[in-house]
């Protein structure tokens, strides 16, 4: 609770001192499992701010998708570790100006994955959720149960290495430090160990479910082309159906477009109504980028995103001589 109080105080102070015109944070949602983003311009409203396991949205998405809102404004934003990396990336990609952003870091202990919660409650509706730190209490019609936090966390959080904002102006609460996460690459390693045909079969089983709703693209702070390649019709790069081919093309290209820019926030996976394991491929690409180029997306505000950078002496074992 202290963190929330401190956060509210910080926002009030920033607004009072006119350091910011607007603060972007989370408020209690109308549904118990999802906090809602809120824009605060007025000190009194700051008391609506919350921060807990339900604050899954990566708020930096507004910087790229709602640019007009922020034109010439000083904006404060609450950032978890992954959100901060997104903001840094947005800055590096010249979507916003560092001088116009006040980043307020919050210590993140992971956000929930609705699908995992519903698996816990056997699909029964959750009417109230109490974030008690290590245990989370779920209440609904005629039942109450508590769950270990780790059992309902989003897969992105279970494999997170940087839960604290690495770039911030103010940090509220105690930073957690880097988490050595051995689990991070386990799933990829397992996947890589499969044979080619097994890989393809498992890819197919996963992506066949896609209904092309584009929720994953829309919540992604790194996906912000004015006209996405899937929406172009002259030339049309990709068919307009939910056929496996078309969906797969969408996902391969989206992955390549966010290569070196994906911060593994998991917003896409949580948004997906079809429960597709989207992070596997994202992590794989991130791993490849790190192995080859030594880059981690959004960590270094003085760096460059991996795919617009290069070194002359890079490994080029794949070149046809």
């Amino acid at each position: 609770m202290n963190v929330v109080n401190d956060l509210r105080k910080t926002i009030k102070k920033l607004l009072a001192e006119k350091k910011i015109d607007l603060f972007v944070g989370w408020e209690k949602g109308s549904l118990p499992m999802a906090a809602t983003p809120i824009f605060i311009t007025n000190e009194d409203e700051a008391d609506r701010i919350v921060f807990d396991i339900t604050c899954g949205n990566n708020l930096s998405v507004y910087f790229t998708k709602d640019k007009k809102q922020f034109a010439d404004k000083k904006v404060g934003i609450a950032v978890k570790g992954c959100d901060a990396r997104s903001v840094v990336l947005n800055i590096l990609e010249k979507q916003i100006d560092r001088a116009n952003v006040v980043m307020v870091g919050v210590p993140c202990h992971g956000v929930l994955d609705k699908k995992k919660v519903l698996a816990k409650t056997d699909g029964r509706e959750v009417l109230e959720l109490i974030d008690g730190g290590d245990t989370v209490t779920l209440k609904g019609n005629g039942y109450e149960l508590s769950s270990d936090r780790s059992e309902i966390l989003s897969s992105s959080c279970l494999s997170c290495i940087y839960p604290d904002a690495q770039e911030y102006d103010i940090f509220v609460g105690e930073p957690r430090g880097e988490v050595p996460n051995e689990n991070r690459l386990k799933e990829i390693k397992e996947f890589e160990a499969m044979s080619t045909s097994e890989k393809w079969a498992s890819t197919r089983a996963e992506y066949e479910k896609c209904i092309r709703c584009y929720a994953c693209r829309n919540v992604c702070p790194s996906c912000y082309c004015n006209v996405c390649f899937v929406d172009q019709n002259d030339p049309a790069w990709i068919g307009n159906t939910c056929d496996f081919t078309d969906s797969m093309v969408f996902h391969i290209i989206r992955n390549l477009h966010v290569a070196g820019r994906c911060v593994e926030c998991g917003a896409c996976e949580r948004a997906c109504p079809m429960d597709i394991n989207l992070l596997l491929l994202n992590r794989k690409v991130a791993m490849e980028v790190k192995d080859r180029f030594g880059d981690v997306a959004g960590l270094d505000i003085n760096g460059k995103p991996a795919m617009v950078d290069f070194r002359e002496d890079e490994k080029q074992d794949f070149i046809m001589g």
Partner: peptide
């Protein structure tokens, strides 16, 4: 840049 992209 082409080389980086191609590797990925």
């Amino acid at each position: 840049h082409a080389r980086r992209r191609f590797a990925i």
